[in-house]
């Protein structure tokens, strides 16, 4: 084969594979756009202020999704209230106190494994421990505790990233002035890490809000058109509501528009939370010169 022919063949192979890669990337983007398009078009017809703020009526065939939205907000906030202090504490230990060694490797291994445990297994665990053994029953608190354990690996990882972004020189400067380790952490490290931790926490919140499998077992109610006012009550939740409307309802065709609307509200909620998290991250990144 001549040199020119060889080069031509090379060029041909190259463009073939580059085309393949581009094509798959285009499918990825296309799929995402399609998903949005389908949900937005389907949901836009029913979504309105009253759809969001009204109780469901006539066995969910009419009315709105207010209790499901409130239930999701409640369970997510409760989840974060439990997991964020624990996660930040664990991250502080790993990043500020721990010396590299066997214990730290074991902790990191556990965190990675926890993040790989299927959500339904968390659900089973929560059902057995919080609902049955602790006697909370299927309830808001049992679901929140379950979700809190599930998002814990993510919260820890996020908080650790925030701590790592704080320059080492702050810590050295503080310790060299005779600060104790806790004074140094409390007064120098944490104030600079809080925006990053807030970002991580809100991302955790978004995960908790979209999660369904664990709450099916631990507290979500099929149809309960009231706002829960105690953490030991069951609750409705947007993702579970969508599941019910889509597959479990006796008249799935009738409630289809409501299902679209629920899906759209859920997507918007999750995107809103993520946007807020990203906004906080970027805002503080600009503001702090050391980052």
């Amino acid at each position: 084969m001549t040199n020119a022919a060889l080069t031509k063949k090379k060029r041909y192979t190259q463009s073939l594979w580059v085309t393949v890669c581009s094509l798959f990337t285009a499918i990825t983007v296309g799929t995402l756009l399609f998903l949005f398009y389908w949900i937005v078009v389907g949901g836009a017809e029913v979504i309105s202020w009253s759809f969001i703020t009204q109780m469901p009526e006539q066995n969910m065939t009419a009315g709105g999704i207010w209790p499901a939205l409130v239930g999701t907000v409640y369970v997510s906030l409760l989840t974060i209230a439990i997991s964020v202090p624990l996660g930040i504490g664990a991250a502080i230990y790993l990043n500020e106190y721990a010396k590299q060694g066997r214990l730290v490797r074991l902790i990191r291994l556990s965190i990675r494994n926890l993040s790989g445990v299927p959500s339904i297994v968390y659900g089973l665990f929560g059902l057995g421990l919080f609902a049955a053994t602790f006697g909370f029953g299927r309830s808001l608190i049992a679901a929140a505790l379950t979700l809190a354990i599930m998002v814990l690996p993510w919260v820890i990882t996020g908080a650790e990233e925030a701590l790592k972004a704080v320059p080492r020189s702050f810590r050295e400067g503080g310790l060299a002035l005779g600060a104790t380790r806790w004074q140094m952490i409390r007064q120098l490290v944490l104030p600079s890490a809080i925006p990053g931790m807030a970002t991580g926490s809100i991302l955790g919140l978004a995960r908790a809000a979209g999660e369904t499998a664990p709450i099916i077992l631990t507290g979500a109610a099929y149809y309960l058109p009231i706002i829960p006012h105690d953490i030991k009550e069951q609750f409705m939740a947007l993702p579970y509501h969508l599941y019910i409307l889509a597959t479990q309802h006796s008249e799935t065709a009738t409630v289809r528009p409501i299902a679209y609307g629920t899906a759209l509200v859920l997507i918007l909620l999750v995107i809103l939370l993520n946007s807020v998290a990203i906004f906080i991250r970027n805002y503080y990144r600009r503001k702090n010169e050391w980052l």
């Binding site: 978004a206 993702p239 997507i267």
Partner: peptide, 14 residues
């Protein structure tokens, strides 16, 4: 990243 935040129940619905 947006793919990763899509709630699974919405994908199930699709």
């Amino acid at each position: 990243e947006i793919f990763a935040i899509f709630p699974s129940v919405v994908l199930g619905f699709i």
